[in-house]
């Protein structure tokens, strides 16, 4: 009986995913002109949120410097396109490669630092990277670069790229959590020392997560600057990106796949509604985040799960056959 109910629930979930995907894919056909840029932002912020959540929500590596990869991704796209005349898709490949290499190099010193010092160090790295790029003539100092190839792109193309990035980020986290690697990751999320005592290799798991998170963050960063069409160090390496990610994850629900999706929708919509009052949206979101930390530390998704037991992207493992207790 229970299995039948579970099968029915799973069918409903698959149905909802298919309908949501169909609506998102056909959005440029049925949506208003104003909807496409909003949904583009939502998609990119979903990717940002998923990647920050993967890193901080599961491995406990609270990084306040993940915007380094947004900036690196954006600059990889801008330089490939503007300085080398390469097609934009090559810029995305470069964004992934540059982010991977930088994450690999930087992991050596920063993984030796623990706790709050790690957090501060990641922010310092990101900030220093922005300052360094401001001194380079090659990237036009702090003045920035127009990414002219993006000017000709229809908004629907940019939207589809953003949608692709969001889908890849959600799928990557889902598949990771369903894998053997994800089992260890979830154990680490609950109790790192106990996970190690059970055989989970902490360093290796954290490094893999950091690399995956950084690469997808870099690609999402490239998508963001493809959308903006212009990049300069102050905006590319600004901590605002990471603050947005933190708020998305706290509001939506840390350590869940649904959380960053809910958080990204709320963040972008609130910013749109309060467009004429810049700064207020972050103030309100900050207040919501503080209230949620106090009353519902697991965010909106945690509340939903507590009251309804609902989990949309369930990564739960269940035994194939349960022997009835005697």
């Amino acid at each position: 009986m229970k299995t039948l109910l579970e099968n029915k629930t799973n069918t409903v979930k698959v149905g909802v995913v298919i309908i949501a995907l169909a609506l998102l894919v056909t959005l440029p056909n049925w949506g208003t002109r104003g909807m496409i840029p909003i949904f583009t932002l939502i998609m990119i912020y979903i990717a940002f949120g998923q990647m920050w959540n993967l890193l901080s929500g599961y491995t406990g590596l609270v990084s306040l410097g993940q915007h380094a990869f947004i900036g690196l991704g954006g600059y990889a796209l801008a330089v490939s396109s503007e300085r080398f005349g390469l097609p934009l898709y090559v810029g995305f490949i470069m964004a992934a490669i540059v982010s991977f290499l930088f994450a690999l190099i930087i992991s050596v010193p920063i993984f030796k630092i623990k706790g709050v010092y790690f957090t501060i160090c990641t922010w310092v790295v990101a900030h220093s990277l922005g300052l360094f790029l401001s001194t380079l003539a090659f990237v036009n100092y702090a003045i920035g670069i127009n990414i002219r190839a993006t000017f000709r792109l229809p908004t629907s193309t940019i939207y589809y790229v953003a949608l692709g990035v969001a889908i890849v980020s959600v799928l990557a986290v889902y598949l990771l959590l369903r894998s053997r690697f994800g089992l260890g990751l979830m154990a680490m999320r609950d109790d790192e020392d106990a996970a190690e005592a059970r055989g989970v290799a902490l360093y290796k798991t954290k490094l893999k997560c950091f690399l995956i998170s950084s690469v997808i963050m870099g690609v999402a960063g490239a998508a963001m600057f493809m959308n903006l069409g212009f990049i300069l160090p102050a905006s590319a390496f600004g901590i605002d990106w990471t603050i947005s990610m933190v708020i998305i994850v706290i509001v939506g629900g840390k350590g869940t796949i649904e959380g960053p999706i809910i958080g990204a929708v709320i963040l972008v919509m609130l910013r749109q509604w309060l467009f004429d009052f810049p700064g207020y949206s972050m103030l309100i979101l900050g207040a919501i985040a503080i209230i949620l930390i106090l009353v519902a530390p697991k965010g909106i998704m945690g509340l939903v799960h507590r009251f309804t037991g609902a989990e949309f992207f369930s990564v739960r493992r269940r035994p194939k056959r349960i022997t009835e207790p005697k």
């Binding site: 053997r180 089992l183 979830m186 609950d190 996970a195 059970r198 055989g199 493992r317 035994p319």
Partner: peptide, 30 residues
């Protein structure tokens, strides 16, 4: 691991502690 089920907890022990495949660890967990 508080947010994991009894089954998943035992699974962690098998998959990571004994280095066996998840399917086999699942049978063992039951």
């Amino acid at each position: 691991f508080e947010n994991m089920s009894t089954y998943e907890n035992i699974l962690v022990g098998g998959v990571y502690g004994d280095n066996i495949k998840e399917k086999e660890a699942g049978r063992q967990a039951v």
